[in-house]
Nucleic acid binder design. Structure first.
Lengths: 221, 221
DNA sequence: GCCGGAATAACACATATGTGTTATTGTACC
DNA sequence: GGTACAATAACACATATGTGTTATTCCGGC
């Protein structure tokens, strides 16, 4: 089989011990390690498609680009790569966000190493979706509250703001600062500042909160 | 531990072999067997609460009352009983319906007996939600199409923030800066800054937008 | 090929904001 | 009478933000 695995975690110790365990317990090769999302995407850029990892173990809580944004970004670039989220918390919103972003599985970090290995193999070979049972429970709870929506929407004509500006506005709305938005969208902070300045001019406001308020009132976010 | 298990399946052979496996592999007692939902509910009626099964293995496809309707009906009567659905199909709609009905776990019938036993124990002891990986995958797919309906409610205990802090938060929410809030509330900007710092600490956030987002989500403004 | 606009990027400066610390006052509770 | 706490106020410092200005690249339309 010879699986190719990547590990993204800001804690170097975690990465190494996990990589070591994968190697000795299952002969699985960790072909790429990164300390945050930006780092990971940088390293992916120089790989040929046949070198892509089969499964990426992705920490959620990281400085710089977090695990969820990283999955969202890379799912469009590398749709065949599967992501197994690792987290210390089992926070409802995070789980939902990660799933929407395209995560293929969701494990708690204190899962036994053998269980993690098994999940990696299931994910890679069977196209299954492994979850820690406690995560699965929350997933069910979320689903039972959810209403299936036939993907409605498209308010369409928000031609006032450009696509790019809308993206920036969405990031602002969830409380990110310049640096974080820049990291998420792969732009410089200078560009983000310029976009925001343009947004303010178009909306006739002078601060983040005012802009976000207008966006929310008009259902742009 | 001594778990009490019930099995509901229209195929007598399935019931017996499953019961036998539970008994010899894990010493788990099957205290009740039924061939369909009506049968199951009849038998439950004559039991005292302390005799209720801990976990019920529930087939979905059955003549008479099917597994999903059975769970729906019995969840109101016996809320403490947990249901582990067993099915040969992994049909999307069925999964969603079963979850809404109150199923606590969802396994494919061709799961290895040891895996089923493990799931029963996890469900009973840890209050977890075991799922076959392929079911989990479909669950994720459903969730990613779903829109969370927060079912609102609970303004109630906003004792977290003081009255004064709430006033300040409201002013923040409409886009005022420190000076404007101070002027509106006849306070010094120093005081406003202190209030806001306290608000951040209580809400575990670090910026206006994040604080306002929480306030709006909780209907405080 | 040229033009205009959008997206990108950079620099500089004045303000606003986030954070740590300290202090005074009023008031409710024991 | 003491004390615990909310509200008020102030200071200092490091960052984040708002704003003005300039420049390059890419793309669609004429």
């Amino acid at each position: 089989m010879n699986l190719k695995i990547a590990i993204v975690d800001d804690n170097r110790r975690n990465r190494y011990s996990l990589a070591e365990q994968l190697r000795i317990s299952a002969g699985i090769a960790v072909i790429l390690q990164a300390g945050d999302g930006g780092d990971y995407l940088e390293q992916m850029k120089v790989l040929e498609p046949e070198q892509y990892p089969d499964v990426v173990l992705m920490d959620i809580e990281m400085p710089g680009m977090n695990g969820i944004d990283t999955v969202r970004n890379s799912k469009t670039l590398y749709p065949s790569v599967k992501y197994l989220m690792l987290t210390v918390f089992d926070d409802d919103d995070k789980i939902f966000e990660a799933i929407r972003a395209g995560a293929n599985g969701y494990l708690l970090k204190d899962e036994k190493p053998m269980a993690i290995i098994e999940c990696i193999q299931q994910l890679a070979e069977l196209d299954a979706a492994p979850m820690s049972p406690s995560i699965a429970r929350k997933t069910l709870a979320l689903l039972s509250q959810a209403t299936l929506v036939t993907s409605v929407d498209k308010p369409a004509s928000v031609q006032l703001l450009s696509e790019r500006e809308l993206e920036v506005l969405k990031q602002m709305a969830i409380g990110k600062d310049y640096k974080q938005i820049a990291a998420t969208l792969f732009l410089s902070t200078h560009t983000i500042r310029k976009h925001i300045a343009n947004i303010y001019e178009k909306l006739h406001v002078t601060s983040k909160i005012q802009a976000v308020n207008i966006a929310q009132k008009n259902n742009w976010v």
